[in-house]
């Protein structure tokens, strides 16, 4: 019966994952390997193709009506940033990185909303102290977003804009500092992470484990969080045994990734803080500001 309960938990989290995350690993890998019936993604590999592809990056095509509604809520708030930016007489090539960065912020804010909905679907999460729910999201959400970038990436580039665009790693590396430094550590992490060959049902459990970390700073009531995490960890261990019977030590290897993630997030937050100082005209999305402020 205990194993049956763990399997039911795995199914529940997988269903929530499919409900809240529009671009699954299965779909992303199909796009990356050219196996989709739809058109191939638009490739951004230089400034010219970036300018051509900008209309896609603005995320105008949204997968579902529910996402469309929620997304407009987030972009309305963010629209003021692009408006303010248009008045500045910047060199067009200097401005393009900032515009791209603003688009990334809008998508990230939407992704935070998706992760929040997923977190709320973890059994027991919404019964936790509300302040602890906030703390778990504040500290966990960037780690979750970085894990979720892995399926979109290969060694040559990454899918963006819900899989409609492929941006090359070389192009990202050619941007001016510190923009060029932002995604390279995520590529390095993703290439290694992808060798574990997790599927979407494994990912759902792993994301829940990361969210339910009882050692986040400032938690008021750690015990119920650790109890929830322990149950999900059991479900993950069983899932990996059943889904990857030949992959030795996969559970242990996966848990080790959580240590790598903390360093990547710390470095990421420092880069954003650097950007805030160096790019006078750059504004941070209010939701992302909330998350990053006093994080590490």
């Amino acid at each position: 019966p205990e194993a049956a309960d763990l399997r039911a938990l795995s199914r529940h989290l997988y269903e929530a994952y499919l409900k809240y995350f529009p671009l699954t690993k299965a779909k992303a890998r199909a796009i990356l390997s050219g196996k989709t019936a739809d058109n191939a993604p638009f490739v951004i590999h230089d400034m010219k193709s970036l300018l051509e592809g900008e209309q896609f990056i603005n995320c105008k095509q949204i997968p579902t009506p529910e996402h469309q509604q929620q997304m407009s809520a987030l972009t309305v708030a963010h629209g003021g940033l692009s408006g303010a930016h248009q008045g500045l007489e910047c060199n067009i090539l200097d401005a393009v990185e900032l515009r791209f960065f603003h688009s990334c912020q809008s998508r990230s804010a939407e992704a935070v909303r998706e992760v929040t909905e997923f977190a709320k679907s973890i059994p027991g999460f919404i019964e936790l102290d509300l302040n602890d729910q906030v703390t778990l999201l504040k500290y966990g959400v960037i780690e979750v977003l970085i894990i979720m970038m892995a399926p979109l990436m290969n060694k040559d580039g990454t899918l963006i804009a819900y899989g409609q665009i492929f941006m090359t790693r070389e192009f990202l590396k050619s941007l001016r500092k510190p923009f060029c430094q932002m995604l390279e550590p995520k590529f390095e992490f993703s290439v290694k992470f992808n060798t574990l060959e997790l599927d979407d049902s494994d990912m759902a459990l792993f994301l829940a484990v990361v969210i339910l970390s009882g050692d986040r700073p400032g938690l008021l009531n750690v015990k119920p969080i650790e109890q929830l995490q322990e149950t999900v960890l059991h479900a993950l261990e069983l899932q990996l045994k059943l889904n990857h019977p030949d992959s030795l030590q996969l559970f242990a290897k996966l848990l080790q990734k959580m240590t790598d993630l903390r360093q990547i997030v710390t470095d990421h937050v420092h880069l954003i803080q650097l950007l805030k100082k160096s790019e006078m005209e750059m504004c941070l999305h209010p939701l992302l500001q909330e998350i990053i402020k006093d994080l590490y």
């Binding site: 809520a73 987030l74 909303r113 929040t116 509300l130 939701l287 909330e290 402020k293």
Partner: peptide, 20 residues
């Protein structure tokens, strides 16, 4: 609570364009 107003709203399903 004020420091994490939007996160609170997202958790309590009370996010609207005006709030954001």
């Amino acid at each position: 609570k004020e420091k994490h107003k939007i996160l609170h709203q997202l958790l309590q399903n009370s996010t609207s364009p005006v709030d954001l």
